[in-house]
């Protein structure tokens, strides 16, 4: 075991951890912003509104993330002329942009289904009471349904965020220098394969359980009314 190379490459691995966190955080936020309206459309009674969202979710949940990343990063090259005409090519030739776009669309699809489950889980009595108070449409969603749905969906959404953090390791395949990318480059040069990949794995473990800890704290806060024994600290 070559501990020297681990200590030597630790600063670069931590730089990689920053990239991992940055990519994950941006995708989670954008995915969330996309998923909320999509999940409202997903439960629409109108099939022409419901079905396109369902198809989007089905495609992005039914195919590997790696294929989605390659489709956007390499696949966009097939439409280079068209994208150049629209001034979009300078985005699509950036690996960073393609990574964020594919991770965002992917997590939006998974989150949308999670939030749909939350919306469907809101008890009818609450909706009925809100209607009796004269709320309807966007006010009903904003004040009653979405907050309640988010509470129901929170534990499942926590898992999705953790999965996305781990999936972000795939961006190393399209040349980005996240934790995995840094570990691969240094390992290929120094042949210290297991030292670097084990160190990378430990950094991921710390990040994953850090995220779980934070999300658990939020959960205790937003679900404290269901669990009066464990008062929020």
């Amino acid at each position: 075991m070559d501990t020297e190379i681990i200590i030597e490459s630790l600063p670069r691995l931590l730089d990689g951890a920053l990239i991992t966190m940055e990519i994950t955080a941006i995708s989670v936020v954008l995915g969330f912003i996309l998923a909320i309206p999509l999940s409202v459309l997903r439960v629409s009674k109108n099939p022409f509104i419901r079905w396109p969202v369902y198809a989007f979710n089905f495609y992005f949940r039914g195919t590997p993330l790696l294929v989605q990343i390659f489709l956007i990063y390499y696949g966009s090259g097939q439409f280079q002329e068209f994208l150049s005409d629209w001034g979009l090519w300078r985005f699509f030739r950036e690996a960073w942009f393609c990574a964020i776009l594919s991770l965002t669309l992917n997590t939006a699809a998974y989150s949308c289904e999670i939030f749909r489950g939350g919306i469907e889980g809101v008890s009818f009595g609450e909706v009925e009471a809100a209607r009796a108070c004269g709320m309807s449409g966007s006010l009903l969603y904003r004040r009653i349904i979405l907050p309640a749905a988010l509470r129901i969906a929170w534990p499942a959404y926590t898992n999705e965020v953790v999965f996305l953090l781990q999936s972000s390791s795939l961006v190393s395949v399209i040349t980005l220098m996240d934790i995995t990318g840094v570990a691969r480059v240094i390992a290929a040069r120094s042949f210290a394969f297991y030292e670097l990949f084990i160190t990378a794995a430990i950094i991921y473990l710390v990040l994953v359980y850090g995220v779980l800890f934070v999300f658990k704290r939020v959960e205790n806060k937003i679900l404290c009314h269901l669990n009066p024994g464990a008062a929020s600290s």
Partner: peptide
């Protein structure tokens, strides 16, 4: 469950 699949695959294939 806390480690990405890709890292584990690389660890087994190159590291082991």
């Amino acid at each position: 469950r806390g480690i990405p699949e890709l890292v584990l695959i690389l660890l087994v294939y190159y590291g082991a």
